[in-house]
């Protein structure tokens, strides 16, 4: 299948085998420009493996992943990020020994200067253009009070939010979210949904892996259901809700 213009991410018949275990079997999936696409499935369905294949952590055993017509297979994580794919992790990955502000400045710097640029003596602090924009971005997302704190000292929820800010300031063409509300309390989940809805309305293409059906059904334009490494259903939320296979594999299990 030839990737058309409005297809951002084209996952082309991807297989991934770990020592005989089929983590992904013939996963075929297109992410369209501007949509929020949720990938759901029970534990061990292959959701995280799929995401790892997309960002270059794991090479697919077979098949390929195309991003705006560029093949991602074989590219390093930094190359994929430089193409415009930002990822937010399930367990927050931040620079814990740097301040919250510096974390965001780091994200902005690589967006501006690329993967490597030797700038030995120019001053880089909150006075500069990047510093000022980083402060604004943090204030906009409710982290204004933590700007000068060490990122490692933030609460888990705030670390997640910081990661989201780091992703957004890079103005990515595709945002990959790995269970953004896992382990969050209801109130915080709702706050996160609100933030994500704003991001979605800005026109960004989002892929979200999520366990929480409330989150999925409040945000997703389309949903892909994985089970046992295979795509068992795909469609708009209403179709998925009514799909007996999905209910059997996943939703049913939750209701028990």
């Amino acid at each position: 299948m030839i990737a058309t213009n409005d297809i951002v991410l084209h996952i082309d018949h991807v297989h991934k085998t770990f020592a005989g275990l089929h983590a992904l079997a013939d996963v075929h999936l297109d992410i369209r420009e501007g949509e929020t696409h949720a990938i759901i499935g029970p534990n061990g369905a292959g959701k995280s493996t799929l995401l790892n294949v997309c960002v270059g952590v794991l090479p697919p055993t077979q098949g390929k992943v195309m991003f705006h017509g560029t093949e991602l297979t074989g590219l390093k994580p930094y190359e994929i990020n430089q193409l415009g794919v930002a990822r937010v992790f399930q367990t927050p990955e931040i620079f814990g020994d740097l301040t919250v502000l510096e974390n965001v400045m780091m994200a902005m710097l690589s967006h501006r200067d690329g993967a490597f640029r030797l700038k030995l003596v120019s001053r880089f602090d909150e006075q500069g253009e990047i510093g000022q924009r980083a402060i604004q971005a943090l204030r906009d997302r409710g982290l204004g009070g933590h700007i000068y704190h060490l990122a490692g000292a933030l609460s888990r929820g705030d670390k997640r939010r910081l990661e989201l800010v780091m992703g957004l300031v890079q103005k990515p063409k595709l945002l990959l979210l790995d269970e953004p509300t896992a382990g969050m309390a209801r109130a915080d989940t709702n706050a996160t949904i609100e933030i994500l809805r704003q991001i979605k309305e800005s026109g960004m293409t989002i892929v979200i892996i999520e366990h929480d059906m409330h989150v999925v059904f409040s945000l997703a334009d389309r949903i892909t259901v994985l089970a046992g490494g295979r795509v068992i259903a795909q469609g708009v939320p209403d179709e998925i809700k009514g799909n007996p296979k999905v209910i059997e594999a996943y939703l049913g299990e939750e209701q028990v």
Binding site: V55, K76, P77, Y78, N81, Q82, A86, R87, F89, E93, I94, F95, G96, D97, L98, E102, M106, A107, S110, H111, G114, A115, F116, M166, Q170
Partner: peptide, 15 residues
């Protein structure tokens, strides 16, 4: 300093 703090994150931040 960021490399010292979390080298793994560097790649995902585009470095």
């Amino acid at each position: 300093r960021a490399i010292k703090s979390n080298q793994n994150r560097m790649g995902y931040t585009g470095y």
